[in-house]
Design a protein around this nucleic acid. Sequence first.
DNA 1: CATCGGAACTAAACCGGTTTAGTCGGTCGG
DNA 2: CCGACCGACTAAACCGGTTTAGTTCCGATG
Lengths: 340, 340
Amino acid sequence: MGRPTINDVATAAGVSKGAVSFALNGRPGISPDTRRRILETAEQLGWAPSPRARALSVSKALAVGLVIARPPEILRADAFFPSFIAGLEAALSPRGHALLLQVAEQADHPAYRRLVQEGRVDGVFVTDLRVDDARPALLEELGLPAVLIGPELGEQPRERQSGLGVDDAPGIRAAVEHLIALGHRDIAHVAGPLEMVHGRSRRRAWSQTLADAGLPEGTCVEADFSAESGARAMGVLLDQAVPPTAVVFANDLMAMAGLSLALARGVSVPGDLSVTGFDDVEISAHLQPSLTSVHTDVVAWGRAAATRLLQLIDLEEPTPADLPAARLVVRSSTGPTPRR
Amino acid sequence: MGRPTINDVATAAGVSKGAVSFALNGRPGISPDTRRRILETAEQLGWAPSPRARALSVSKALAVGLVIARPPEILRADAFFPSFIAGLEAALSPRGHALLLQVAEQADHPAYRRLVQEGRVDGVFVTDLRVDDARPALLEELGLPAVLIGPELGEQPRERQSGLGVDDAPGIRAAVEHLIALGHRDIAHVAGPLEMVHGRSRRRAWSQTLADAGLPEGTCVEADFSAESGARAMGVLLDQAVPPTAVVFANDLMAMAGLSLALARGVSVPGDLSVTGFDDVEISAHLQPSLTSVHTDVVAWGRAAATRLLQLIDLEEPTPADLPAARLVVRSSTGPTPRR
DNA sequence: CATCGGAACTAAACCGGTTTAGTCGGTCGG
DNA sequence: CCGACCGACTAAACCGGTTTAGTTCCGATG
């Protein structure tokens, strides 16, 4: 005797199972009286429709997928996914959809194919987009609704796809402008991988802001978002004949590592050098010196992404998401230009 | 014309659908010849059985659940879940099981009930166990197989449950012994919440190690694993009449924040004070000074947990998991006792 | 040579819902 | 007073697999 089924309810209420289904789904053809009686017996028996059976007959999975396409080592220190997932869940579970996770190697096409072929999901989220990423085209070909998450999504709107712009440019712009206001003229950038859209868009925002201010473009070192690479990049910058007076990092992890390297080499922060990060991870506020960073509301992104995907699946008109803007959090790793 | 079904394969191969099912599942009653032919046509048609239909008929979900019971803010900085999930996935997907995620409020019983009632999962992972956690009992009552993850699990073995001991005591022990070897005699501890099993077990390991070495128990400050609380705890310790010469933190986040607070107060690390963490998050190695910490292989835990859960579900005999031991990584936040 | 047993399949029931095609009783219009 | 129509509901098909109960055909056995 496991859980009750629709048949148990039907028998108990003295109707056919079709009637129960109608009553449950609020379809016409059932008198208010009967409907109430059915719902009551269902309640009483503690019956809830089985998503399994339902999924089979409506040919839907009632689940959406998030394919995390990063090697575990990088995943390890990631601040993005936990919050993002929390946001997704917040929007999904009230609507009866489950979140299916899959961890795959970088841009692992078979992973998506499998997800589709097995029909486990009705749609997917695509993160960590790369320049010329093949996944949007693949998903379109597979006919799987998708929400693409990232800045500067190409304009080509595909069938059943929607881009959710998490525009990080204003955050970087704010950081650069903050440094300019402090008197800095030689502002370097440590970028994420430039084949990733968020690596590239942050870099572009940095150089654009400098250009807009009439300043010469500073040095840009490409790194890979890891602490290790951040420290290496800082090493390169410090080894220059004329090191920059400020460095804008594309994320906090690199910024913290870079900042520490500078300290280790006897460079005072913010005395000799100002540093900014991006993401505003928890520890940033508690370091010595604390890190000026750009705070983004990742949970809200997740919520918005999930809402959008469900709309796509149900063929509804997508409502424009208004995401909270990224905001600069000024702390003690930035200060006035040193006198030379 | 969507994906092919078992019927298409049966027709194409000129057999009944039962035969196809038998062939696919390697059951007896099909001649090697026919079996080969069936599998070939299936291959050719690009057919894979639909988990939906299969789940319905075998009354299994072919999915397992991970309920993350932490408020999003804490989740934010978490280093554990991403890696753990990667490990889970590594063991689950080859066996055709999906990972369902649910984010719930602290020990949200309805979340588990729902998961069971809807029959979406065949088993769950339970993390962040608390002392006197009600969830194991609840899950047993619901008849849902579960793997409990954490140190010092109660001995009461429940029906269809299995504890996966991620014993963090040796790691803490190694840290304390390392400090003792450096000459420290006054070693404090900043603990996680003592109502959480991993908060408590780490604390116990610290005090036990001191006792074993014949040293008096140092001060223990209870915190909550957050950076904020780590800094506060360090403040308390430094305000003591005779501050400790070394502090063992229950995780890296608190350790980093505590260490930074000490620096901010002009305390030299490791000159005046030694500090150790736990988790060995990526940034730990790159701070200034770099953090001595205990490294654990979370991905391996995840793999082991998933393997164990699948065994539980299939009523197999659980194989003892041999998890890689935690190991101390000595860096520059620990040093000899200062001369007083 | 009739019979029994087993291997190789097929037909049909089943999982638990949704959905379509009817059935039935009553009302309304002509 | 009869037929059309409608609302309320039932019966049965269907989703795509698994599984059980037969059915056939074959060789071996007494």
